[in-house]
């Protein structure tokens, strides 16, 4: 089992397209930091409130801003790509039936596939946060952080909050990976699974932006993804984060069970 999981992680990390995707994810905080540096003299304020204004004061905010920016498109796209590939990709290349010949059982194959996806989600999100924090601190320097409440916290406390925020975003992405894994069991075309997962994510963002559908918002996976911003209040507001984690867990459980129901009962011909 451990060996199987390790080989799955190696498979995901070794793919050229995954490495290229990771490079894109890492490039965003670097571009962001350079852009802010070049336009530093511009009057600030009035823009979208997503920590970008804070970067000049403390480089650590590059990580927060990059997480906020990539939450809507790049991170879900990366997760959709990897998770759509998980089952459908094997089916497409005809390797799925060989995978099922190892005495592991289909449930176990699914579990290892999901483990690999969670690993991928954590690597992707931590790459964004770590690159952002390092580049930011190198360009803008660091020190104590100003919270949204206007108080200051020490660099250590700020980095701890960044760590918790990063884990929170990674867990949200892991939940999306469960959705992607389920979609991936429905088809033998990895592209179709990726596109379908991405469309579902985009549709949820659209629904989340319509105020008249307010009753639906707490049920959308993406609704609480940005709740980690509440951790930068003083005192930190955990309400949104806990609600987000429970939504993440709900989606993960239902999607994984659905993936199991589909995959375990499916005729594998390819």
């Amino acid at each position: 089992m451990m060996r199987f999981a390790r080989s799955e992680m190696r498979l995901i990390a070794g793919r050229r397209r995954n490495q290229a995707g990771l490079a894109v994810l890492a490039a965003v905080p670097i571009l962001l930091a350079i852009a802010v540096r070049l336009t530093e003299s511009n009057p600030r304020g009035g823009g979208p409130p997503s920590f970008i204004d804070d970067i000049v004061g403390n480089g650590v905010f590059v990580a927060f801003a990059a997480l906020t920016l990539q939450l809507t498109l790049f991170l879900p796209l990366a997760i959709s790509m990897v998770s759509g590939d998980a089952i459908a990709g094997e089916a497409h290349t005809g390797t799925l039936r060989y995978l099922l010949t190892v005495p592991a059982g289909r449930s176990r194959v699914l579990a290892v596939k999901y483990f690999g996806l969670v690993f991928g989600a954590f690597v992707a999100v931590f790459t964004v946060a770590v690159v952002g924090a390092l580049v930011g601190m190198a360009i803008f320097g660091t020190g104590s952080l100003t919270t949204l409440s206007g108080t200051q916290i020490s660099l250590g406390a700020g980095l701890l909050r960044l760590f918790v925020s990063t884990v929170y975003v990674a867990l949200g992405m892991s939940s999306l990976a469960a959705l992607g894994l389920f979609v991936s069991t429905l088809t033998t075309q990895p592209i179709a699974a990726t596109v379908a997962t991405m469309v579902l994510t985009a549709a949820m963002w659209v629904l989340d932006a319509v105020p008249q559908l307010g009753w639906l918002h707490p049920w959308l996976l993406v609704d609480h993804w940005a709740a980690f911003a509440d951790l930068m209040r003083d005192p930190a507001d955990w309400g949104g984060v806990w609600r987000g984690l429970s939504v993440d867990l709900g989606y993960a459980v239902v999607c994984l069970l659905a993936a199991w129901a589909r995959f375990d009962g499916k005729d594998i011909t390819t």
């Binding site: 409130p49 997503s50 949204l148 940005a226 509440d230």
Partner: peptide, 10 residues
């Protein structure tokens, strides 16, 4: 503390 999206008025 009036809470907004990544914003706050205190």
């Amino acid at each position: 503390a009036l809470l907004g999206d990544s914003a706050e008025t205190d």
